[in-house]
Amino acid sequence: MADKNSFIQSWCTIQNNKINLNGETIFESEPTIGFADFAKAAYRNFGWSYPKFFKMDSLSKLAFIAAELLLKDETTNETETDIALVFSNKSSSMDTDVTFQESIATKENYYPSPAVFVYTLPNICMGEISIRHNLKSENSFFIFEKFNPGFLSNYTDVLLSTNRAEKVLCAWVDFYKETYRANFYLVNSTEGLEHNETTIKTLFNT
C-alpha cells in the first residue's frame, strides 16, 4: 500500500476536436474536420516548433499534444526531469497497424513504409514524449477494455511511494479510425486535487 500522499496537479482531455485543460476549453476546431487537420491546427495555434510532430502517427500526435500542454512548464532541454509515464488504451496501435498492413497486402504493390512501421507499437508515443521532454524515466503502457482509473492510481502511488519517480504523467490515449480520446493527468506528492479513483472519474466524466 502506498505510504505517500499524491495529488493531481493538472489534467487535460482531448476528444471530438476539442482540447480542455484543467476544466477549461483552450482550443477547438470544426467537428467536421478530420483528426490530422485538427492536430495540425492545434499545433499552429499553440505556436509549437517541433517538425518531428508531422511525421508522427495519429496516436503519437494525440499523446504529444496532451503531454505538451501538461509538461511545458515541467521540463527543460538542459536537465532531466524524473516524470514517469503510465499510459493505457484499448486500441493499442491498431490504427497504424491497419495502415501498415494495407501497404503490404498485395504482391503487386508491396511497399512497406519504414516511417509507418516504426509506429506499430502503442508505447512509441511514450518514446516521442520522452525525446521531446528529455525524460529517461520509468514508463509502462497497458491495454485495457476501458479507462481504468483504479489501476492507474494504484500503479502511480506505488511509483511515487517507492521513489521511482518525482511525478507521474498518467494517460488513457486511444485512437482508432478517427474516434479518439485522451485523458491525461499529472500526479505529484505535494499539492493539487486529491489523487484517487473517485477524483479521476469525476475529472474525466467516466
Binding site: Y111, S113, P114, A115
Partner: peptide, 9 residues
Amino acid sequence: SIDALELIV
C-alpha cells in the same frame, strides 16, 4: 535514418 529508409522505398 528512418527518412533514409523511406527514400529507398
